[in-house]
Computed example of a mutant assay.
Amino acid sequence: MNLSVGVTIAREISLDLRRGTDGAVVVATKRVKEDGDGCGVRRRRAALRMVDRQLAKGNSKLALSLVKQLQRQPPPAGLRGFAAARQVPRRFSSVEELDLNVTEKSDLQSLHGSILDLIKSSLQSSPLDESSVTGEDDDLYSEYDIVEHKQVVQHEAGHFLVGYVLGVLPKKYRFSSMEDVKQDQVIDASVKFIGFEFLTELEDELSSKKNMCDVKPGHRAIKRKLSSTVLSKFLCVIVGGLVAEYLVYGYSKGHHGDMDKLGRVLKWLQITEDEADGVLRWAVLNTLLILRRHGEARLALVDSMTRGRSIGNCIDVIETTLNYHDI
């Protein structure tokens, strides 16, 4: 634990961190139990306001460090949901392999198949030239799409929630205002995360080339930074938006930017079509189950994001409504 950061947290939220053989965490646990859940929640919210301040200053690493320290604190002062998602084993890639009843399997199979078909068709038709390079995490809606504002927020909440429970901290989000939607303007939206900086490096590399043929896929200096764990998280987060739309509406209109970005990453890493099919089957299945289990938290997050609440406030909403019995 970073001592200077730990002292700051203690001062802000009045934790009793005495020096002793048991360490600070044990003392904090005793204090939380004495004060009750209400006081613990207030401490959590005070600490999350600190996270917001660091994010506003652009101190992403410090903000993430604060969140990880809160993750180690006991509930309710601590964060129980960050990086805590129960995931589908990597060896599973189909609904049939899951221990579910017939009805659940039937519902999931239909969704799983429809989402995979959309991803496959989008990847096949996605342009890969320089002119279509987009920002790090932008979700673009075609000007021909009639999209309600609430559908855009559902999409972004899907990205946000999946990233959070997988341990990828959102650092900012935005989406077009309702006025933009009413004026039939092209809608753009995004959630940016700490830990996906490789996307910026990739886009910088692409934008400096005339076309994809000039890019050296899998450039070793960058590829080494993209571990299998990071790739798995990225795949789940990138499909989180369209999966959330499917769960609510049965279709997605906000997948254009996501699929363009996904195609670029897969090509950059020199992942073959067969390899991509396998990892995407798992990622969609994993994401689908995560968002289904935490429907209440997703809806509460949608409301918070609609109101333009801070990242810390959104995290607090997730922690308050997350299904901890089946995380």
Score class of each variant (00 low, 15 high):
179 E>R: 14
214 D>N: 11
113 G>A: 07
301 L>V: 11
125 S>Y: 03
222 I>S: 09
217 P>G: 14
123 L>Q: 02
65 S>N: 10
56 A>H: 04
177 S>A: 13
208 S>R: 08
162 V>I: 14
88 V>M: 11
9 I>T: 01
109 Q>V: 00
245 E>C: 10
284 V>P: 02
99 D>A: 15
221 A>P: 02
69 Q>T: 01
75 P>V: 09
279 V>W: 00
33 K>P: 00
28 A>K: 07
167 G>L: 12
220 R>S: 13
179 E>D: 12
13 I>T: 01
2 N>D: 15
299 L>R: 15
69 Q>G: 00
50 M>L: 15
1 M>C: 06
309 R>M: 11
63 A>T: 04
137 D>A: 15
94 S>T: 15
163 G>Q: 09
86 R>H: 07
90 R>V: 11
281 R>S: 04
231 L>N: 03
113 G>K: 04
188 D>T: 14
102 V>Q: 09
156 E>A: 11
111 L>P: 00
128 L>T: 03
302 V>T: 11
247 L>Q: 03
112 H>T: 06
289 L>W: 04
7 V>R: 11
31 R>M: 10
166 L>H: 07
166 L>F: 08
69 Q>D: 03
176 S>V: 06
26 V>L: 07
82 F>Y: 15
280 L>T: 03
121 S>I: 05
237 V>F: 03
49 R>F: 00
232 S>V: 05
87 Q>I: 15
189 A>W: 07
88 V>A: 10
156 E>M: 08
324 Y>F: 14
221 A>D: 13
24 A>D: 06
169 L>I: 12
134 T>E: 10
247 L>F: 01
102 V>E: 09
112 H>G: 00
162 V>H: 06
114 S>P: 00
117 D>C: 04
50 M>W: 00
206 L>K: 08
223 K>E: 11
12 E>V: 03
181 V>S: 12
245 E>T: 05
215 V>I: 14
167 G>I: 14
191 V>C: 10
243 V>T: 09
17 L>S: 01
255 H>A: 09
91 R>Q: 12
313 N>I: 04
306 T>S: 12
108 L>W: 06
178 M>L: 12
199 L>P: 00
204 D>E: 13
140 L>T: 11
305 M>E: 06
153 V>D: 07
125 S>G: 04
189 A>H: 08
184 D>F: 14
56 A>M: 06
2 N>P: 06
275 E>W: 07
4 S>E: 14
196 F>C: 08
226 L>D: 00
